[in-house]
Design a protein around this nucleic acid. Sequence first.
DNA 1: GTCTATATTGTGATAGAC
DNA 2: GTCTATCACAATATAGAC
Lengths: 192, 192
Amino acid sequence: MTTEARRTLIEAAQELYATNGVAATTPREVLARSGVGQGSLYHHFPSKRDLAAAAVAQTVDDTLGSAAATLDGADAPQRRIADYLERPRAATAGCRVGRLTADPVVMGDETLRGEVSRYFTELIELVAQAFAEQGLDAAAARDRATTAVAVIQGGYVLSRALGDDAAMSSAVRGLLELMEPRTDWARGEEQA
Amino acid sequence: MTTEARRTLIEAAQELYATNGVAATTPREVLARSGVGQGSLYHHFPSKRDLAAAAVAQTVDDTLGSAAATLDGADAPQRRIADYLERPRAATAGCRVGRLTADPVVMGDETLRGEVSRYFTELIELVAQAFAEQGLDAAAARDRATTAVAVIQGGYVLSRALGDDAAMSSAVRGLLELMEPRTDWARGEEQA
DNA sequence: GTCTATATTGTGATAGAC
DNA sequence: GTCTATCACAATATAGAC
């Protein structure tokens, strides 16, 4: 079936990109992992960039959908934000989307760069919406959402650099502590 | 002179790594940019990895020294931290060290990975020291320092992804706002 | 739509003269 | 220590049969 080989190729590419990035992933590796023949690859995807465009768009959709499931819920905004920040992550593996900002093939292709840009634009917007519901004005909500997403992305970078998931946990803990009402020297509580 | 060609090669490699990463930088490009001949490169650096080890170590030393100049100063810790966070950065260019965590050649080589690890270990320690001087206990200072460094690294990722230096500024602004004493609903000030 | 064979170019490294 | 010439191999892609 035509769609079968295509999907298999995209999935193999997604996994390889998560490990090695787009630039360092060769068509040969995609063929080996997918079990599909050479002719099929170039039938479905005339060039390496065409495969990358399909696989990266799929990864952005997957990852964004998963984040939206947490951030768009019916819980209190404070809870949704904490759930998003504390979600279990394979931090030392790095962010599948964030790592693409260091990939020369991605950054050199307008379509691929656009997918990465779309991911972060929509993610920051989701988080900003939750902060706005907490009562922050639009500008402050946007700044704080950018900070929160940056902590996650930076947490991935640090965990990878140090080879330890604890760096992500530490970065998130530091942020949550700052966002907590300061019961130590100020009044007791802010919300229920 | 022997040292001259060597230094020229390292500088050319550093610049190319900052733009394209280590994996995507070819010996030919280093030769073209440095103006040195092929034989010289392989005389000074038997393999591509040897050149990368020298150039990455130099970049880590440069970047760490520049951060330490701000963070080790005589100013109040609060000021040194703010100066570090607000330092002018070419954010859309990405972090020269942080981007290496997505580079398969770097992550696949123990020496290179060690340099990246050393950078963040020492950077977090410098920032944690300043937070500790502000009165935070060791664990809290370490978490907050990790958060601060993550905001910068995440700021680079977001600025690159969105093609806009404003993302870094927004992430830093959001963090500084969280670290400020909350004069709106708590007591007026914490320090001078 | 898929296969095998092959072409083309670039990469990483070596050889050997100077 | 530096140069030019060259090699072996892999990456990306195409050709043309089935």
